[in-house]
Structure formats: C-alpha cells, structure tokens
Amino acid sequence: MVAKTYAWRKWSVLPGFGLAMGYTLLYLSLIVLIPLAGTFLKAATLTWPDFWETITSARALASYRLTFGASFVAAGVNGIFGLIVAWVLVRYKFPGRRLVDALVDLPFALPTAVAGIALTTIYSPNGWVGKLVEPWGIKIAFTPLGITLALVFIGLPFVVRTVQPVLEDLEPEVEQVAASLGANRWQTFWRVIVPTLLPSVLTGFALSFARAVGEYGSVIFIAGNMPMKTEITPLLIIIKLEQYDYAGATALAVAMLVVSFGMLLFINLLQWWGTRRHVS
C-alpha cells in the first residue's frame, strides 16, 4: 500500500498527504462532483426529443440571444475600459490611486441583489441617470441596454485584475530598446506592449463573459423580465421551477452547464497560451 503511494507521487518527507488528499477528494465529491453528476443523470431521464424541444423553444432561443449578446457586449466594454484602468493604475501616479485600486474590486464584494436594486434605481426613468437621458427618448432600465450595464458592472474587475500583474511584470527595458531602435511611442505600444498583453486581455474578457452569462441577481431587477424581450436564461430556469416544470428546468440547466464547462476549458487554454508566451 505504502509502496504504491510512493510510486504514484514523488517522494516527500512531509507528512499528511494521505489525510489532506483524502479529505480533499471526499469533500470535493460530496459538495461538487456528486451533485453535478446527479444533475446530468437527472437530465438523462428525459427523452431526447423532450430535451431538444425545451432547449430550442422560441422562448429559450430568445433568452440565449439576449444573455449571450448582452454578455458579449458587456465583456467587450470591460475589455477596453479594463485595459485602460489597469494601464492607468500600473503606469501613472495620481492622487488617490490606491483607493481607486481597492474600489475596482467592489463588484466582487457587493452582493448582487444590492447591485441590482442600486443600478435599477439609478437607471430607471426617474433615477439619477435615467432622468438625464429620458428627454432624448433613451430608456435604460427594463431594456437590453440596462441588462448590459448591469453585466458591465459585474464583470468589471476581471480584465483589470488579469492585465494588472502582466503589465507590472513588463520590463521597461523592452520598451527602451524599442524606442532606441527608432520606434515611436505608438509603434512600441502596438508592436511590443499589445502582443504581450493580448492573452491576459482575452482571458479577462472570457472570465467576464462567463460570469455574465450565468449572472442572475444584479440583472433581474433592471431587466424588466418580459418573455421573448428581456428575459435572461437563468430567469427562465427559475420560472420553469416555479411552474413545477422540473424537466424543463433541468434541460436548460444542463445546456448552461455544458456552455460553462466549455468556457472553462477555453479559459484554461487561454491561460496556458498566456503563460507559455510569457515564459518564451
């Protein structure tokens, strides 16, 4: 038994591997793996036509378009502004920089329901911002635009926090060399800095997108939740549950799980690409 363990892993003088590993696997299985497997098994009790009909119903398709479309736009906004925020925080000195740096994480720390009612209050027609744009006929709350704004809020820290460390590690010598070889600042930025930052920006984009696709709390208040128009997929799952349509809810949940795991795989590949480029 002992010999087998040693053959499986590299030998170490440190004790406690068996206990720590055993507990890790047990707890992981009980809390995460078995419940997830149970969900897939439950979906397997549905017939294929039923399953397919649920996940391709007109209402479900409309919810995917909204969820993925709004998430994509929000992640794009975060990609651009997140890069600017990270750049400013790493490269420039200005008063209050550390406070601003700490505030970037607020969307992680603020409960989503609180963010949801706050954003709705700001952007509803009589809110602080809603009032300003109403004379131009722009509606934000209870439209896809409002949903997108909520998703920008929720995904804001991802790009900043993935780009920041890479930018900090970027050695000034590389830029000095580029400049001494005759590149102007724009060329240096475009040809030297952007290629180095690209994997981290894309990783941040993907993380922000993945989070936005599953988001519920911050969106439902501002969404308006009209079927076919402003109804996101997680809400559709809840509606099916409230109608005791467990099969329908399970089918949609499995579809979302497959997308999430696909995203996770993609993000891991991106990170692997990033570290490989970083090393070479």
Binding site: T112, G214, E215, P234, A253, S260, M263
Partner: peptide, 9 residues
C-alpha cells in the same frame, strides 16, 4: 463557472 441559479437547482 456554474451559474448561481444552476448551483441552487
């Protein structure tokens, strides 16, 4: 990476 709603479900 799991949506909160799915986590509850």
């Amino acid at each position: 990476s799991v949506s909160p709603v799915v986590s509850g479900l």
